[in-house]
Amino acid sequence: MIEIKNIFKNFGKLKVLSGVSTEIKKGEVVAIIGASGSGKSTLLRCMNLLEAPTFGEVWMEGRLLTPVDPYLHEEVIEASNTYKKLIGEGLERDAAIAKIREEDLLNEKFSIAEGKEYKGKIKKIYKENSIDINLARRKMGMVFQQFNLFNNMTVKDNITLAPIKTGMYKGMGKEARAAAEAKAMELLERIGLADKADVYPSTLSGGQKQRIAIVRALAMNPDVILFDEPTSALDPEMIGEVLDLMKQLAGEGMTMVIVTHEMGFAREVADRVLFVDEGIIAEEGAPAEVFGNPKHPRLKEFLSKVL
């Protein structure tokens, strides 16, 4: 579903992610845990490119979302002038590639310095695999800590805006709108908030806002939904209603990636848990394994603090 390859993300001098690779499979529920500032939210936001990774690639269902990272493609490295120079100096193929990767030898800023063949290879890979990010995001819902419902629109318009504007429903303007609204009402019925269809978000409680944010994502029929600390901004008595809805989705087979501080929820619902620490995945595995038998010292320390 989503494959991330060797993602690095720097904010200026601050290194937030330092080489993260993982694959989210169809139907899988993945929980990302870690201390504040460990990079777990940034990792999630790199998946739909709300943050553009500094290096590395993000793939979704075989389509490339980011620019081509030359270090990830041996045929690109082999086409570079740097590689040819190293071979000329008598290095073996594998040794030359390893050396280039380890020491970041490719001249990416002035890629013309690596020769036409190198640029051509990159272009070819990009042309064959890349997809418009807006198209990819339509299949990748996201739910935010701060809900981010559109303040200038009613609940119903919040849900129907993207389906209508992206032309998800066939037919003339009116037909498409009617179809989108029918779907929105169906989703609102499901979460018991149909009576709120025509109110503005500012009149809703946090729990109601977040559940509406979730169905706003669902209205696009996404293949996967990314959750960025969906319950962290909620009053304690409202956390349950949001987690219940997420459990329902998980039960229906929705692919979900969830950055969360709710360890009990992660343990119960996730198929796999990633522990992010200092910008890398320090430990990962089934929840029983990660919570019951943690190996990494930082994970042990983290769990002793939060459990």
Binding site: G141, F144, N148, T166
Partner: peptide, 26 residues
């Protein structure tokens, strides 16, 4: 709020649609 733009973009709306439908009205 930047979150408004992020929410719109995460739904696959273009920068232009986000600007005219979400940001400018607010």
């Amino acid at each position: 709020d930047k979150g408004q733009t992020e929410a719109a973009r995460s739904l696959g709306l273009s920068g232009f649609t986000t600007m005219t439908q979400i940001v400018l009205p607010q």
